[in-house]
């Protein structure tokens, strides 16, 4: 088990290397020179050249990449061009807000998605099941930016019961959480339904009934514990999409998280901050995947043994 974790962590480094390299290349392929953007349209050639030299942008791409990689290893992403502060510190300041939003969205999805999925499976092909299916299909196909704006229009502008943007209180968390959670929740409903339907006809579920156990224990303990195995895998993978979703949701609701910082920084070609954010998000993603793998072994003893 220990050796397995070490091996996985080692491979994770390659994934992270890939992520930082891709973002390096993409940023430099995007048109727009940071020096021009920072100095504004009135700057003359000499000023731009001086700033480019100061930022190291006059060097060849290979040289820039080498310097960049060396700095990444020390988690040094340089000063933010825009905010004149250390890029990594800027990103880290924003992490708690994003984690808060992602966690509440995850909790909301689990609290609503799992029970709805169970109900849909137990009442499969009934009108209840169909209603839940329609709801989850809509949830999955509603774009976050649209839903966010509609929620603002209804609850902030129309009913005036919740704040439209910003942070600071639990009330501020409600609309962004719902917006971020809905697509995730919808996937969870469908996964739970199909996962449970797949196992309810298994022999061990018949056995549990034959043992005289209550229907609640049969479904929620004997069937659900097996259905959870694929659910956990997909939930882990989808959590990455949830993190990605924060970029849009944070922008719509002016939520002071990493996602909004990232968008602002991309607009200003603030390379250091963009790279630091991406590395951080990629690291979280990789760690969650590792966690899911470990959890998988915990949920399914057959996997645990094969790995030993």
């Amino acid at each position: 088990m220990g050796a397995y974790v070490v091996r996985r962590l080692f491979f994770s480094l390659f994934v992270l290397w890939g992520a930082v390299t891709i973002i390096f290349v993409v940023l430099r392929l995007v048109p727009g020179d940071p020096a021009y953007i920072m100095l504004g349209p009135d700057a003359d050639q000499a000023q731009v050249a001086a700033l480019r030299a100061q930022l190291g942008l006059d060097q060849s791409l290979i040289q820039q990449y080498a310097t960049y990689l060396a700095n990444v290893v020390h988690l040094d992403f340089g000063e933010s061009f825009r905010l004149n502060a250390d890029s990594m510190s800027l990103v880290l300041q924003r992490v708690p807000a994003t984690i808060q939003l992602a966690t509440t969205a995850l909790l909301l999805s689990l609290l609503i998605g799992l029970p709805l999925g169970v109900i849909a499976a137990l009442r499969a092909h009934s009108w209840v099941d169909r209603a839940i299916s329609v709801f989850s299909l809509m949830g999955q196909s509603t774009p976050s930016f649209w839903l966010g704006i509609v929620l603002i229009l209804v609850f902030a502008r129309g009913l005036k019961v919740l704040p439209s943007a910003g942070s600071g209180s639990w009330a501020h968390l409600v609309l962004p959480t719902i917006t971020l959670a809905l697509p995730f929740l919808a996937i969870l409903v469908r996964l739970t339904r199909s996962g449970l339907l797949e196992v309810v006809h298994e022999g061990y579920v018949h056995t549990a009934r034959a043992k005289g156990l209550g229907e609640g224990i049969v479904v929620l303990v004997h069937a659900m514990r097996n259905a959870l195995i694929p659910i956990v895998t997909v939930v882990g993978l989808q959590f990455g999409a949830l993190l990605g979703g924060t970029v849009i949701v944070e922008t719509v609701f002016a939520w002071p998280g990493v996602g909004r910082l990232l968008i602002d920084s991309i607009g200003r070609r603030d390379y250091g901050v963009v790279q630091a954010s991406i590395l951080l998000v990629a690291t979280i993603f990789v760690l969650i995947n590792l966690l899911v793998d470990l959890l998988y072994g915990f949920l399914d003893p057959r996997v645990r043994l094969a790995g030993d």
Partner: peptide
């Protein structure tokens, strides 16, 4: 389970794997 019990054909699929 108490008065009437049952044993099934395939013990692998009839026992809960987890």
């Amino acid at each position: 389970g108490r008065e009437i019990a049952m044993v099934f054909q395939d013990p692998l699929s009839s026992l809960n794997p987890v």
